[in-house]
Design a binder for these strands. Structure first.
Lengths: 352, 352
DNA sequence: ATGAAAGCGCTAACAT
DNA sequence: ATGTTAGCGCTTTCAT
């Protein structure tokens, strides 16, 4: 299987030159005469020479590799983000090492540490749990790092970031429901993504306040932080009834998976969407288009989040100065939201 | 940013020993006295030493890295497979380089080539297009390689593989429809995944033949190979009407995305599933559970496909002998399939 | 235009 | 138990 690999020394021997000549020839160094250069390239091809990127990396102090940490590879949201990352990485000759953190601080640190040992040129971390307290322990990482939708409240300013404007997204969602005539609007959130959940909750409240609409603690349901073992879908399904009992006619969900859980919950309870209840999600994952009814949602430009984080990393590698980016999400209206229907709603309530 | 990194020489100098002593101490070599060993480890920690995996790789002729090629990172099926791969890779201290081929032969080769240059210890390729004709060009890869659900008819036998039993899966699907009383059963396939499509088609035919049921070319619709730019969902949606017109009461779809397209098509045409038409998918992606009605489908054990391919690779790395694996898919009955309803069906036809 | 030699950071065989 | 030396495969001065 592993007959030793061909090296430039082997080629040099065959060509009757020194190995440095071979190195130069293969790299199109202008010092080498065109003739020998071609000869050497020919021999290299005949011998099936494949340059050893490890040796090059050691010498060049550059691995042309970046590390990417996501919560889960199978998460449809981050899968799309990684797709965007990989695309621009590939176009610049960079390879990507991928690792999953499962929203666990320890695993996130372990992944970064591995990347560090492997001397990646840069790191991208999605949904990071790292905050200022850990800065000390991490500042010697000395590798350009970009955070994507960081979950940390106060982010170390030595790092860079690409974020979605969660508050704006939430406002857009709630304003949409308001424009449809809803006045009792609920929020279905998660307990284990502190920052984004907080921001979306704020956007939700802000929209209600600006519209002069009432608020109530009964209209807000957020999953227990410790209860996060279960999936977002299950969370949405479980928490739905609380809001339904509280009498909301529209619900803004933390994300699409929660919203789908809510949709499922509605089926169980015999509530029809959007006639009896309007539901709005967040993220815009492919799935949101295919459920019934198709989900009205706040779309994040997932590919762009990935590609622009990667682009930022490239700029950092070239020592350009970069500015943190905050991208704007946008509303996509689909079938799960409709004008409020007070009659139907009350009738539905009476039925219970 | 990049103040030079601490090396074992730096530690050696501080500790007043030679760099090889440091190397040994850090690796718990028993030759080093416990006392100096601890001293050295202490100093290393103080200096924030991070071993250079690149230098280790060059010396050890092992990168502890594997390369994974999938058609698309955002593909929900392969995302799940990669999740399985990464999990066992991480547990054995291996890192994974990920690359997308987009079902394109050139890109697949390019990715493998990059892995080759980077001296990965092993390679996993999903949906490979490589066949015996390319063996010559690839046999010097000399890196343990495992194919996952290869798309190639005659696979080079120097490579190993983990596959799903497509024919069995298709049979299961069709037998399920038959057991529900369906006698006119269609197949909705794809033109750009030659092998798996072929196998599933065979399984479909086999089941019909064994049951003594009629077959018809009008009951089989397969997308043009050149028309593959469009998504599987769109394919399913477009091709549906042909089978409907041909009068089938049940359809087995190449995969879940096609099936979802078919579901969408049914909505457009006012056909209710499963009352008027039963639909069965293939893959068992998360999505299949959440559409309406939830999709009856043939599940592939995605995580297991990933982990067992990875396990096979590990065995190969330890020079154990391995055997190719063929995993069995299984039927999951959900709402999209039901007993045939001839009355309703004919009525629906009359309506048109 | 080409070769000799040093060195990237590490491991390991060979001294002692 | 520790130091010396020689690589791993490459790039890059510095000679010539």
């Amino acid at each position: 299987m592993s007959k030793r690999r061909i090296s430039i020394e082997d080629i040099a021997r065959r060509a009757g030159v020194s190995h440095s000549t071979v190195s130069r020839a293969l790299r199109d160094n202008s010092l080498i005469s065109p003739k020998v250069r071609e000869e050497i390239k020919q021999i290299a091809k005949e011998m099936n020479y494949v340059p050893n990127a490890i040796a090059q990396s050691l010498q060049n102090q550059r691995t042309n590799t970046i590390g990417v940490v996501v919560t889960s590879i199978a998460d449809p949201f981050y899968a799309e983000v990684v797709e965007g990352i990989e695309k621009v990485a590939k176009s610049t000759g960079l390879s990507v090492l991928l690792s999953a953190s499962h929203r666990d601080f320890e695993q996130e640190i372990a992944a970064i540490d591995t990347f560090h040992r492997r001397r990646v040129d840069g790191i991208l971390v999605a949904d990071s749990r790292i905050n200022k307290h850990h800065t000390k322990q991490l500042e010697q990482i000395a590798v350009p790092t970009v955070f994507i939708n960081s979950q940390t409240e106060d982010q170390p300013d030595i790092f860079h970031s690409v974020e979605i404007n969660d508050r704006l997204g939430a406002k857009l969602a709630v304003e949409h429901l308001i424009s449809l005539g809803h006045t009792s609007i609920g929020y279905l959130g998660v307990g284990d993504r502190s920052r984004s959940n907080q921001q979306r909750l704020e956007g939700y409240r802000m929209a209600l306040t600006e519209a002069g609409l009432p608020q109530s603690n009964n209209w807000v349901a957020i999953s227990d932080e410790d209860n996060v073992r279960i999936s977002d879908v299950a969370t949405g399904q479980q928490l739905l009834s609380k809001l339904v009992i509280a009498g909301v006619t529209g619900i803004f969900c933390y994300n699409d998976m929660i919203a789908i859980g809510a949709l499922l919950g509605c089926q169980e309870l015999g509530i029809s969407v959007p006639q009896d209840l309007s539901i709005v999600g967040f993220d815009g994952i492919a799935l949101s288009r295919y459920v019934t009814p198709p989900l009205t949602t706040i779309c994040q430009p997932m590919l762009e989040i990935g590609s622009s984080a990667m682009q930022m990393l490239l700029d950092l590698l070239e020592e350009k100065s970069v500015e943190n980016r905050v991208l704007s999400p946008f509303l996509v209206k689909r079938g799960s939201s409709a004008a409020v229907n007070k009659g139907r709603r009350q009738e539905a309530e009476g039925r219970r």
